[in-house]
């Protein structure tokens, strides 16, 4: 099973490949399509999927690992 998860700048996580989406008790969540977008701004009305709300709330996030500034 190979899959990739890619953070897109200021937007969702895009998941591709051979994956299975499940609730904590193991019930499958239908992905609806081969490539999906998972909300990472927390404000989508159709979580776990992205619905574009991140644009309305001006969500900002990089596309790589965030490195906290040293204090």
């Amino acid at each position: 099973m190979t899959s990739t998860i890619t953070p897109y700048e200021d937007g969702p996580l895009i998941v591709r490949g051979d994956f299975e989406l499940r609730t904590p008790d193991g019930t499958p969540i239908a992905p609806g399509r081969a490539t999906i977008a998972l909300c990472r701004c927390g404000r989508s009305a159709i979580k776990p999927f992205c619905d574009g709300t991140h644009k309305v709330i001006n969500f900002r996030a990089g596309a790589d690992r965030d490195t906290p500034k040293p204090r």
């Binding site: 897109y8 937007g11 969702p12 895009i14 609806g32 977008a37 999927f49 619905d51 574009g52």
Partner: peptide, 16 residues
């Protein structure tokens, strides 16, 4: 309804 979800994926792929 389908386009709310689908185009949230498509817009990322299309732009980037």
């Amino acid at each position: 309804d389908e386009h709310v979800e689908a185009d949230a994926v498509h817009e990322q792929i299309a732009a980037h």
